[in-house]
């Protein structure tokens, strides 16, 4: 032990694995990009990692629905190793398509085995793909990835609207602290499009599970780890710290403090 290790899962159509790996390495985690076929072949492969990332992209073309085919793969081939990974106190992060996978596999918000029951992610209200920058207001202090300040990161998706089965399901998400982030404006207020870019219910942008160690979000923190990635960085202070990296820093810090033995950390 001593080294924080992260795995970025690849599959046909996953396309943000390189920059996600770089963000994790910048945060201090030794990171491998591994094709999901290797995990299916060797179910113990996950054991050597502390952080598992389901990155963004269009896994299997988002055929049928975004993230659906890969979620089906996870449920039918990887349910046990993933469950064990979480039970072992390790961290799972789903970004964009990865978030869609986690929700469609029932890993988020979780609670009833790996079965999608009350929450889904569907077509943006605009009916089209959107790439734009948004502000995120944290809604929980349980989730180990996030801190209490508002962050600015980009979204890029066509199916990002979070929907619950009914009002009771929504109330449950809120009362049980599953809401990780909401879309807000620069001042922290919720609002219609484009503040809420996809029409997500109650502006929800990300969810966490009951442990706070599994996070899924539609925006892309890995796309804001360097100042020049901000759309108007040329107007901003030169010592500006990029917001997206905080998610990865916090994950690595958590692993160091909780999963690695103190003498070697």
């Amino acid at each position: 032990m001593g080294q924080v290790r992260a795995i970025v899962l690849r599959a046909a159509g996953i396309n943000t694995d390189l920059e996600t790996q770089y963000a994790l390495e910048l945060a201090g985690a030794k990171t491998d990009r591994v094709h999901i076929n290797r995990l299916i072949e060797d179910k113990t492969l996950l054991d050597q990692y502390h952080i598992a990332i389901f990155p963004g992209g269009f896994s299997y073309g988002d055929d049928v629905a975004a993230g659906k085919i890969m979620a089906n793969q996870v449920v039918h081939h990887l349910a046990e190793p993933v469950r064990k990974f979480i039970d072992d106190g390790k961290l799972v992060l789903g970004i964009c398509n990865g978030f869609q996978v986690l929700v469609k596999a029932g890993i988020l918000p979780g609670g009833n085995g790996f079965r999608q029951e009350a929450v889904t992610i569907t077509n943006n209200d605009s009916g089209r793909y959107e790439d734009r920058w948004v502000y995120l207001e944290p809604q929980t202090d349980r989730c180990v990835f996030i801190e209490s300040r508002r962050i600015c990161v980009p979204i890029a998706h066509g199916e990002g609207k979070i929907v619950t089965k009914d009002d009771a399901a929504l109330q449950k998400l809120k009362s049980e602290g599953h809401v990780a982030f909401k879309y807000v404006d620069a001042d922290g207020n919720e609002g219609p499009f484009p503040v809420n870019p996809n029409g997500s219910i109650e502006s929800i942008a990300g969810l966490t599970d009951k442990t706070g160690r599994v996070l899924g979000l539609m925006p892309h923190p890995e796309r804001y780890i360097r100042r020049t990635q901000h759309p108007h960085w040329s107007r901003l202070a030169e010592d500006l710290a990029p917001d997206g990296i905080t998610i990865f820093n916090n994950a690595v810090k958590y692993v160091r403090e909780n999963l690695l033995s103190p003498c070697t950390a």
Partner: peptide, 15 residues
């Protein structure tokens, strides 16, 4: 422009 992902790969500097 917004329908196109112009930031994937994390390399965009001037968008």
């Amino acid at each position: 422009i917004r329908q196109y992902d112009h930031e994937v790969q994390g390399g965009s500097v001037v968008k």
